[in-house]
Design a binder for these strands. Structure first.
Length: 572
RNA sequence: CGGGAUGUGGCGCAGUUUGGCGAGCGCGCUUGCCUUGGGAGCAAGAGGUCGGGGGUUCAAAUCCCCCCAUCCCGACCA
């Protein structure tokens, strides 16, 4: 294709509404345009990248024996009511009505649809296992779309559902997908880490996330510093080991002290001259089952996912100032477990080991010192509800944990029979007995993977696409487009590259060389072939690697073979 | 949803505080000349409901009210 005929609207300046680097570069390099918050148009270059990613995914899914199908975006409310998720999913679900007033939603995920298909069409154990997948748009009415393509309201996703006779079968399917996902992201040229994950609203009992490591990643993960151990988990899920007890002497009598206007852990600790770890941090949450108080040590972060799991609630929200005042009789900053009536208390094990700690007195400008769990207050539940930190022991082997950030590009779940039971998706086994299918589900964010690739592979000049997902492999740049000899040679080299199976474009625009070089760097073609005077007069054609800037000099006759070799070497 | 900010040609911005002649600048775009190894130069052009609605005023991009959109922080999130 000739660049003069392509729609690649590059920009010199960064659009003011783009914050993360992948968003900035994808807009600047002419890959995407925003239509509405979290909704994007994919221009031709982006379309090609998405297609490359999708092709890799299809090949790896098919390799595992999966079959592709296509499911509707518009889904009837009745199916979602059957699974119970119409009410549970909340405002995230894009809901709409047809002209008759029937309710529908735009699919954020397709468990209901696929399970409905299964129950209608699959009858016998002889038809199992079954791996079905699709690649298409999904919709989530995010409260706050952000980070460009990384958190949109409309996005492209591959989702696969496995149906097995039993847990053992599910295990096999799950392993197949684990393997397939590892191959997909490796083939996309991405550095990634697989971590144990929470199952969240989708349910199920076992899950892994595939994280593309990047400093800008939203997810925080920990992994064992011991290579041999290999433990890695999303911080939401990673269990914390309670720190050893601190010797703070025998229990002393409870005492109220004035802490005027000291509302944060730091302020209270500073004012009283104690370490933050001696403070019992009390956080009040509202749930559908009522209010609860959660206790963690002052120097720890509460982990809301763990808390939610410990409580078994669907809704968990930090209580507002009014609710706190109602529950404790004090302004925010002075809540504590002592004398906190009518609110069940959940405590982290570390809190239970504290002696002579400090806690809010449920009275303005007042804290208690010498607080002792058990003696001064009772708890309803003791559970690990804090965020584990780097340097803490690995839950598997005890070596120190390390921390990293990642972009979640894939997640796999063992669902079990949650949806098949709810929707009556059963099959007949050898004995003629109806049994619910044992399901798994497996997603890859396709458009997010594209953005994650940019987050991981860029430099000051622009995008540096891994060759396997680059929109084109090579751009051929005639330095002086007015020079007929250069243009003619560039054109014939371009044709030879195409004939050799190389995906090439010819930048035939009547621009100065600098403009074309800048655009080539910005767009991120893995290779650039430069045809200047030296090519015409001395037979020297340059091949420049985008990633390293390394330039290979070759001859027009050998160019195609040289480019082919560079691409096949696989290090681009 | 809470807090903060911003909306002015395609993109990036100034002008708004203190209302006042024809609404500007840079980039991009069109035409011509010139130039051609890292976003050249000269000249002539095109392009704007100043986010929308209402109000105050002789006069509103500028002041007041309402609404909308977008971004950031938080909360939230297969």
């Amino acid at each position: 294709m000739r660049v003069s005929a392509m729609l690649i609207p590059t920009l010199r300046e960064v659009p003011s509404d783009a914050e993360v680097v992948s968003h900035q570069l994808l807009v600047r390099a002419g890959f995407v345009r925003k239509v509405s918050a979290g909704v994007y148009t994919f221009l031709p270059l982006a379309r090609r990248v998405l297609e490359k990613i999708e092709t890799i995914i299809r090949e790896e899914m098919n390799r595992q024996g999966a079959q592709e199908l296509l499911l509707p975006i518009i889904q009837p409310a009745e199916l979602w009511r059957e699974s119970g998720r119409w009410d549970v999913y909340g405002p995230e679900l894009f809901r709409l009505q047809d002209r008759h007033g029937r309710l529908f939603c735009l699919g954020p995920t397709h468990e209901e649809i696929i399970t409905d298909l299964f129950r209608n069409e699959v009858k016998s154990y002889r038809q199992l296992p079954l791996l079905l997948y699709q690649i298409q748009n999904k919709y989530r009415d995010e409260r706050r779309p952000r980070f460009g393509l990384l958190r949109g309201r409309e996005f492209i996703m591959k989702d696969l559902y496995s149906f097995d006779r039993d847990e053992a079968g599910l295990e096999v399917s799950y392993r197949k997908m684990y393997e397939a996902y590892s191959r997909v992201f490796a083939r996309c040229g991405l550095k990634y880490r697989v971590v144990e994950a929470d199952t969240g609203a989708i349910g199920g009992h076992d899950s892994h996330e595939f994280m593309v490591t990047a400093a800008s990643g939203e997810a925080l993960l920990v992994y064992c510093s011991s290579e041999r151990c290999g433990y890695a988990a999303n911080v939401e899920r990673a269990p914390a080991t309670p720190a050893p007890e601190e010797d703070t002497g025998p229990p002393r009598p409870l005492e109220a002290v004035a802490t005027p206007a000291r509302t944060t852990v730091e302020e209270v600790a500073g004012y009283l001259g104690v370490s933050p770890r001696r403070i019992i941090k009390t956080l009040l949450y509202e749930t559908e089952k009522g209010m609860v108080a959660a206790l963690v040590r002052g120097d720890r972060q509460l982990n809301e996912v763990k808390l939610q799991n410990a409580l078994g609630v669907l809704r968990l929200e930090l209580a507002g100032a009014e609710a706190v005042a109602r529950a404790t009789g004090a302004p925010v900053g002075f809540a504590g477990p002592v004398g906190l009536g009518g609110v069940p208390v959940v405590a982290d094990p570390e809190v239970m080991k504290m002696r002579n700690g400090v806690a809010g007195a449920n009275r303005a400008d007042t804290h208690y010192v010498n607080v002792n769990p058990g003696r001064d207050f009772q708890v309803a539940t003791v559970a690990d509800i804090r965020v584990v930190e780097a340097g803490e022991p690995c839950p598997r082997c005890g070596q120190p944990l390390e921390q990293a950030r990642g972009i979640e590009v894939g997640q796999i779940f063992k669902l079990g029979d949650k949806y098949s039971r709810a929707l009556g998706a059963t099959f007949l086994d050898e004995k003629g007995e109806a049994r619910p299918a044992i399901m798994g589900c497996y997603g890859i964010g396709v458009s997010r993977t594209m953005a994650a690739a940019v987050e991981q592979h860029h430099d000051a000049d622009g995008i540096v696409w891994p060759a396997s997902i680059a929109p084109y492999h090579v751009v051929v740049v005639p330095v002086n487009s007015r020079d007929e000899a250069q243009m003619g040679l560039a054109d014939s080299l371009y044709r030879e590259l195409m004939a050799a199976g190389v995906e090439a474009v010819l930048d035939d625009r009547p621009e100065r060389a600098g403009v074309k070089f800048k655009d080539a760097d910005l767009i991120g073609y893995p290779l650039r072939v430069t045809v200047g005077n030296r090519a015409v007069e001395q037979g020297e054609v340059e091949v420049r690697e985008r990633r390293t800037g390394h330039t290979h000099v070759t001859t027009p006759g050998e160019l195609a073979a040289r480019v082919r070799a560079l691409l096949d070497a696989g290090h681009l």
